[in-house]
Amino acid sequence: MKVLALSSAGREPDFSRVYEHLGGQLDLDLKILDKEAQRDLRGTLRQVDLATYDRVLVDLHFKNIRRQTRFLRRIPGLLIYEEDACQNYLETSRWRGCFSRFYRALPNARIVVTGASVAERLTREGFNVHFIPKGYDPQVIFSEHLERDIELGFIGRTASAAYQERKRLLDRLAAEDALQLLRTPPGEPYRQMLNRIRYFVSADVGLNEYMAKNFEAMACGCVLLAWRQGREEPAIGLEDGVHLLLYSSVEELRGHLVRLRQDPELARTIAENGRHFTERHLSHLRLAEHLMKVLEEPWPSPEPLTPWREFWARLNPF
Rank of each mutant, 00 (worst) to 15 (best):
A174C: 05
R166A: 07
H276S: 09
D240C: 03
R286W: 03
A119N: 02
M1H: 08
S160D: 14
V18D: 02
R183M: 12
R228L: 01
L173Q: 06
F318Y: 13
E297Y: 06
I75R: 01
G230H: 07
F127E: 01
Y136Q: 02
F318R: 09
H281C: 10
G10M: 07
G274R: 00
S16M: 01
Y190D: 03
S100I: 08
Q38T: 11
D177C: 12
N128F: 03
E91K: 14
Y103S: 03
T123V: 07
L305H: 02
I141H: 00
K134V: 11
C220S: 15
Y53H: 09
N195D: 08
E120Y: 02
A219G: 10
Y163S: 10
F99G: 03
F71G: 09
W299I: 02
V223P: 05
E120G: 06
G24M: 11
K167N: 09
F142W: 05
D204W: 00
L33T: 10
A235I: 04
K31Y: 14
N195V: 12
P307I: 07
G156D: 07
A174E: 10
C220G: 11
F62I: 10
R231D: 06
F154P: 07
A51P: 00
R191Q: 12
W227C: 05
Q38L: 09
I75N: 00
R259V: 13
F71A: 08
L305G: 01
R157I: 10
G221A: 04
V294M: 09
A105L: 08
L79S: 04
E297W: 03
V56K: 05
L90A: 05
F154I: 08
K63Q: 12
L181H: 06
E251Y: 01
I236L: 03
E83I: 13
S117N: 05
T69E: 07
L41Q: 04
S143N: 14
S8W: 07
Y136F: 15
I197C: 05
A85C: 12
H256Y: 13
K167P: 02
R17A: 11
H61V: 13
H61R: 13
N316D: 15
L245I: 00
S8N: 09
F127D: 02
Q47P: 01
G274F: 00
F142R: 12
S143Q: 08
Y163V: 02
A5R: 01
R268K: 15
D177Q: 11
Q229W: 02
P138K: 03
F62C: 07
D84E: 14
P13W: 05
N88T: 07
R261K: 13
